[in-house]
Design a protein around this nucleic acid. Sequence first.
RNA 1: UGGGGCGUCGCCAAGCGGUAAGGCACCGGAUUUUGAUUCCGGCAUUCCCAGGUUCGAUCCCUGGCGCCCCAGCCA
Length: 559
Amino acid sequence: MPEEIAAPVTNNFLRTIIDEDLKSGKHAGIVTRFPPEPNGYLHIGHAKSICINFGLARDFGGRCHLRFDDTNPAKEEQEYIDSIKESVRWLGFDWGKHLYYASDNFDQLYQWAVYLIEQGKAYVEDLNAEQIRAYRGTLTEPGTESPFRSRPVAENSDLFRRMKDGEFPDGTRVLRAKIDMASPNMNLRDPVLYRIIHTPHPHVGDTWKIYPMYDFAHGQTDAIEGITHSICTLEFESHKPLYEWFLDNLPVPARPRQYEFARLNLTYTVMSKRKLQELVRLGIVSGWDDPRLPTLEGLRRRGYPSAAVRSFCEQIGVGRSDSWIDVSILEECVRTHLNETAPRAMAVLRPIKLVIDNYPVGQTEEFTAANHPQRPEMGSRSILFSREIWIDADDFMEVPSKGFHRLTIGGEVKLRSGYIVTCLSVVKDGDGEIIELHGEYDPASREGIHTADGRKVKGVIHWVSAENAVNAEVRLFDRLFSDPNPDRGGIDYKQFLNPDSVQILTDCRLEASLADAVDETRYQFERQGYFCLDPKDAGSGTLVFNRIVTLRDTWAAKK
RNA sequence: UGGGGCGUCGCCAAGCGGUAAGGCACCGGAUUUUGAUUCCGGCAUUCCCAGGUUCGAUCCCUGGCGCCCCAGCCA
């Protein structure tokens, strides 16, 4: 693999903070973490977080942990744990021996909850969820203290122990921190610390009947792991005072700091777990790895190189203002990477036969075609020329539109790596559908794009010999939605589904060398785009290609 | 309407009191057997608005305006 394209490293507020912390000696080294809850599959938004956390650790000589924030067994599954690990690896990051689970700290967390009770800073709540909500007040009105808030310490201790022992059913009691029911910050109005859940946990099984809430687990876990910079998204900002309250009131071994950045929003797609889930459940997409989805498994199956996803994450930067990134930036990163690395090949997606009448029946020739026009070290391959060849329907127009410089009747065109040919006639069936084209070639035109009389041929088209072409299915993917922001409120996002987000072409003719296409290799089908074998459906003699992304097409854009 | 945060080119984003980096997009032009690539050139007298402080402000102060987040026993 070629070396990673060095992305211009622009400064950002996190780098500035870390620089200062290191310079001032506040930290000798940095420790970050990527802390997904294993309740679903990762998507490109997570990739941003992964690149930030692992990238910062890499750039500043620190380390980054992979931590499963598994505090809610009702939503988590082993399948997600496995998928997440695989996706992080695919993205090219390595947590080494630093794989952790919040649930590994359940004993410690429980001890700390007991400690808070003993300090008179936590109490067992008997009010139900609905009552708790009512007592919490509103954004503009202070809450009301629960009648159980002044429960004696001994009673709290006893009740909490019995909650842990599984004596009470789900939802009957919770443990709450005693902070301030009148706080303008809702998170400080006696937040719930523990709830009762009698559901087996994917990592710790059925040892626990009570589970800590995110707020009671995250900061403490950061402290236990020695995280120096706990980086999360903006919506956790109002949790920071709580995060710090626990660090202040518990005998934690370290003092991590939380920093927030703006999460990634991408146009023409949806990112919320709920919507992604619905697309899968409704069968609108084929699964979590559908190549049109922004999931990491989807992008991977689509053929996006992980290096391109990484450079995308570098390029969009990290800030604190809400932003919408246009998907075209992601696509451009993919093109940039693939242009340099992908071997070229010729593939006719919508074949029409062109018969070269002045080329002898039965004769063939082998031409040499470079695998990459700018990189001779990538070698070359031989392609077969014969009397009958396939060309793309898009490259022929009986009545050419203005500016069209491909094949027309009476017009000439250069066959890439081959001869100049002229089309002389069209054969149609009764319905007026084109059956085949007839034409002639210029034997002296193997090299260059000039005719014998010195004219320069404007068009160059791809083609494949009918003699040895291989058949394949090619899937052309496009954006899943036709609106830049299908996720906007008020309207059902499914209204914006792009009806042509996938086109399956089953009768494609590819150059013979593609019969040996390799799984991990991305090819450029010249003049069309980048393609790779579908990792799921290709194999055992069946060729199925996915279009990763088209080539830039200023001609099509102009039309 | 309580609290917190954000507002620099079409989209991101540097800048942190000394006179607007970069990327993507876009527009020209050159090279090209991919209408691709590459290459050159252009692209914010101006930083949400209005006042103020200062020799000097995108950066400081005041007041507006706009957008986002918080009322899960989700994370």
